[in-house]
């Protein structure tokens, strides 16, 4: 069986910088791949390479076996690959409903009329609990609702592959749970999902496999528990000093408690323009 999403040796250089260097992953239907790594590791660039925002300089992108390497974003969307953006990108002049309707209008093969798309949008909003704010402008939403809107916009494309770029950022722990439950539900429905996340609790609770990136390269891939306990990952994330201290603490406690802390990673607000 062909995987929903496969990348082979995917790479891009910006001048002398190898922002993403030889990443190969496979995501089957109904599986969740987590992508973690410190700031500037190339996680978002990796997504941008797959969804067409940036053209790779080497490697392949296969969606359900079809070669979509370097295709334009709308071609990727038409192949039912949807994404959210790390920095929310709502259409500010449109209502929440129309924000979602856009995806249904153009993303779905063949598209639909405005009225039909609004119908689809209403279904998606209903499902994500956003019906109450459908008429508002996206700038009037709470952080949690704004994050949900991004997911709703992606789901309106009726995707089979879904990329969530830090869909938990800025959420309170209580607000995360519904978002996580949604991801589990989508997985059960057979979506292949790629989650870029700094919230380790989210990674641990929804991912089947975790890819750790560092400086554009694959550091390690494996099941979440294994990966998050790995020395190299802890070092990559927290730096040498902290890693040593934690190792010492763990030795003291004599147990193998949670490795990488259950909080948001050490990340300054708005990781915007990283390398390149």
């Amino acid at each position: 069986m062909t995987a929903a999403l496969e990348t082979r040796d995917l790479s891009v250089r910006f001048g002398g910088l190898k922002a993403v260097d030889g990443i190969s992953v496979t995501v089957e239907d109904g599986r969740v791949l987590g992508v973690i790594g410190p700031n500037g590791a190339g996680k978002s660039t990796f997504i941008n390479l797959i969804t067409g925002q940036i053209r790779p300089t080497r490697g392949k992108v296969l969606v359900a076996g079809r070669d979509l390497t370097g295709a334009k974003p709308w071609k990727i969307a038409a192949a039912r690959v949807a994404r959210t953006f790390q920095i929310n990108k709502p259409f500010r002049g449109l209502s929440v409903r129309d924000n979602v309707a856009i995806g249904a209008m153009f993303g779905a093969p063949g598209g639909g009329s405005v009225a039909k798309a609004r119908g689809v949008a209403d279904e998606v909003l209903e499902r994500l609990g956003l019906s109450g704010v459908a008429e508002l402008g996206p700038t009037e939403l709470s952080v949690a609702h704004a994050q949900r809107l991004e997911v709703a916009k992606a789901l309106a494309l009726r995707p089979r592959v879904l990329f969530l770029d830090e869909a938990m950022a800025g959420l309170r722990p209580a607000e995360m749970e519904p978002q996580l439950e949604l991801i589990r539900e989508l997985r059960r429905e057979g979506l292949a999902i790629v989650v870029v996340e700094h919230v380790m609790r989210a990674i641990r609770s929804v991912c089947d496999t975790v890819l750790v990136m560092q400086e554009g390269r694959e550091l390690l891939t494996g099941p979440p528990d294994e990966v998050l306990a790995d020395e190299r990952v802890i070092t990559a994330y927290l730096g040498q000093r902290y890693a040593e201290r934690q190792r010492a603490e763990r030795a003291e406690a004599g147990g193998s408690g949670p490795a990488v802390a259950d909080q948001v990673g050490p990340r300054p607000e708005g990781e915007t323009r990283a390398p390149g």
């Binding site: 969804t51 067409g52 925002q53 334009k72 974003p73 709308w74 969307a77 038409a78 949807a82 994404r83 953006f85 990108k89 709502p90 259409f91 500010r92 002049g93 449109l94 856009i102 995806g103 209008m105 153009f106 993303g107 779905a108 916009k153 309106a156 494309l157």
Partner: peptide, 11 residues
């Protein structure tokens, strides 16, 4: 309003 998001939405 956002060309990247528009393209990602299939436009």
């Amino acid at each position: 309003q956002d060309e990247d998001a528009a393209a990602a939405a299939g436009i």
